[in-house]
């Protein structure tokens, strides 16, 4: 792996504590003197949150597709009639 990817991996282990304690302390110490590294760590934290939000959106879209199918496809007529009958006032 190229050097920058090794650093990305180390940052990941620092953010999601695992592996060698010494490596984590080293990152922490380097951040004190290297502002750019500190920025990369902060951005990587944001990136994990954005990825999770993206995952949620993908999953939600998948559920929406299924919902569209069961409420639109004539193969599910019985289900549609049953559900709609609950909302006739």
């Amino acid at each position: 792996m190229r050097t920058s990817l090794i650093e990305t991996e180390r940052i990941e282990k620092y953010i999601h504590p695992q592996g060698n304690v010494g490596d984590r302390l080293l990152i922490e110490a380097r951040m004190q003197i290297d502002g750019e590294l500190a920025e990369r760590v902060a951005s990587q934290k944001q990136t994990y949150q954005i990825i999770r939000e993206y995952g949620r959106k993908q999953f939600r879209a998948e559920i929406c597709q299924v919902q569209k199918k069961v409420f639109g496809d004539s193969a599910y007529k019985k289900f549609q009639t049953k559900v709609r009958s609950y909302f006739k006032f």
Partner: peptide, 24 residues
Amino acid sequence: VQKYKCLEKVREQVQTKSLTYEDF
């Protein structure tokens, strides 16, 4: 390797655009 390449790529985008979780 590909996972870290992608992570680095997205992180750079996040850093350049100063995106935050709240934007999403």
